[in-house]
Simulated assay, not measured.
Amino acid sequence: MKVRAQAPNVKNSTNFNAASDSKTAVGTTLENLKSAIRGETGAHNKYMTFAKAAKEQGYDQIARLFTATAAAELIHIGLEYDLVAAMDPDYEKPTVDAPVPGTSDLNLISGANGEIYETSDMYPSFIKKAQEEGNSKAVHVFSRAKLAESVHAERYLAAYNDLDAPDDDKFYLCPICGYIHKGEDFEKCPICFKPKESFTAY
């Protein structure tokens, strides 16, 4: 993802359209935030399970990628939960069971499919509803998550294509928005502009 002159958002970007055959059930913004938390919780648990499987199957770099992405989902959960807690103080975070992992190649495809759904359908649908309701905080949180998810999908597909040709590159996680960079060649997050020095290496 290239760094732009201004941080990308729903107003200055053209890749925020929802899929024409959307599978997302859209409710109020509060309901959508809760739905997003449930989805991100499921993704976190799934990726931690996939990380363990990748390690056992001898794919150390892929295990690190799954672990970094699981941590990114926790960032999204935290941002979304803060908004929900302000509107519904009695809300409790959901628990979601992790799936049984398969082989790492198919786990990567499963991960990519989930991230593509979130970035091309779920989050754009939720952003549109938050705009209609005038909830700028939700638009901001959903937008950053949507942008990060597209990069997660890209990382998974690249790892899938290079499954049998791994390198020693580390993955770097932005602590603010959940963006993940592979390798050392960057200075700041292209989504929120947080400097490289604040990233966590995996």
Rank of each mutant, 00 (worst) to 15 (best):
A54R: 07
K55R: 13
E56D: 14
E56I: 01
Q57T: 05
Q57G: 01
G58D: 05
I62K: 07
A63Y: 03
A63P: 00
R64F: 00
L65R: 07
F66E: 07
F66H: 06
T67Q: 12
A68R: 02
T69M: 14
A70H: 06
A70M: 05
A71V: 01
A72F: 05
A72V: 03
L74K: 15
L74Q: 15
I75A: 08
I75Q: 10
I75T: 12
H76M: 05
H76P: 03
H76K: 09
I77V: 14
G78H: 08
E80D: 11
Y81A: 13
V84Y: 04
A85E: 13
A86G: 03
M87D: 12
M87Q: 15
M87T: 08
D88C: 00
P89Q: 11
P89L: 09
K93D: 03
K93P: 00
P94L: 09
P94M: 11
P94H: 11
P94V: 08
V96E: 08
D97A: 13
A98Q: 09
A98V: 02
V100P: 00
G102A: 10
S104G: 00
S104P: 03
N107M: 10
L108H: 11
I109M: 13
I109D: 14
S110P: 00
G111E: 09
G111H: 08
A112Y: 10
G114C: 07
G114N: 12
E115S: 07
Y117T: 12
T119S: 13
T119E: 14
T119Q: 11
S120Q: 14
S120Y: 11
D121C: 03
D121E: 08
P124L: 05
P124C: 03
S125Q: 12
F126Y: 15
I127W: 04
K128Y: 09
K128D: 14
K129T: 13
A130D: 08
Q131E: 15
Q131S: 04
E132I: 05
E132G: 02
G134Q: 10
G134S: 09
K137F: 05
K137Q: 15
H140E: 15
F142I: 10
F142A: 06
F142G: 03
R144M: 12
K146S: 11
K146E: 12
L147K: 10
A148S: 15
S150P: 01
V151N: 14
A153W: 04
A153K: 05
E154P: 00
R155A: 05
R155P: 01
L157P: 01
L157N: 04
A158R: 11
A158L: 08
A159G: 03
A159Y: 11
Y160P: 00
N161H: 12
D162F: 02
D162G: 11
D162R: 13
L163F: 04
L163W: 05
L163T: 05
A165G: 02
A165K: 15
P166T: 14
D167I: 06
D169I: 00
D169T: 10
D169P: 00
K170G: 02
F171W: 10
L173F: 07
